[in-house]
Simulated assay, not measured.
Amino acid sequence: MEFEVQARGRATRRFIAIILIALGVIFLVLGLVLAGASASFLSDAKRTRGSVVSLEWREDDHGENHPPAAYPVVEFTSADGMPRRFQSSTGSNPPSYEKGERVEVLYRADSPEDARINGFASLWLLPLIFGGTGLLMSAGGTAVAMARRWSSRRTRIQTPAT
Rank of each mutant, 00 (worst) to 15 (best):
M1S: 11
Q6G: 08
A7F: 02
G9Q: 11
T12Q: 09
T12D: 06
R14S: 10
F15K: 15
I18S: 01
I21L: 02
A22F: 04
V25G: 01
F27C: 14
L28C: 10
L30F: 07
G31L: 02
L32Q: 09
L32Y: 05
V33E: 04
G36D: 04
A39Q: 07
S40A: 11
F41P: 13
L42Y: 00
K46A: 03
G50S: 06
G50D: 06
V52N: 03
S54F: 00
S54R: 15
E56R: 12
E56P: 02
D60Q: 10
D61Y: 01
H62G: 15
E64Y: 01
H66G: 08
A69C: 04
Y71T: 08
P72V: 08
D80S: 12
D80R: 06
G81P: 12
R84T: 04
R85E: 13
S88Q: 08
S88K: 05
S89T: 13
P94E: 04
R102L: 02
V103C: 04
L106Y: 02
Y107I: 14
R108E: 11
A109P: 12
A109T: 13
D110T: 12
S111L: 06
S111D: 15
P112K: 08
N118C: 01
F120T: 15
A121P: 03
A121K: 09
L123V: 13
I129V: 13
I129S: 02
F130Q: 04
G134V: 09
L136R: 07
M137N: 07
A139D: 07
G141M: 06
A143L: 13
V144Q: 08
M146R: 15
M146K: 14
R148Q: 15
T159Y: 04
A161C: 11
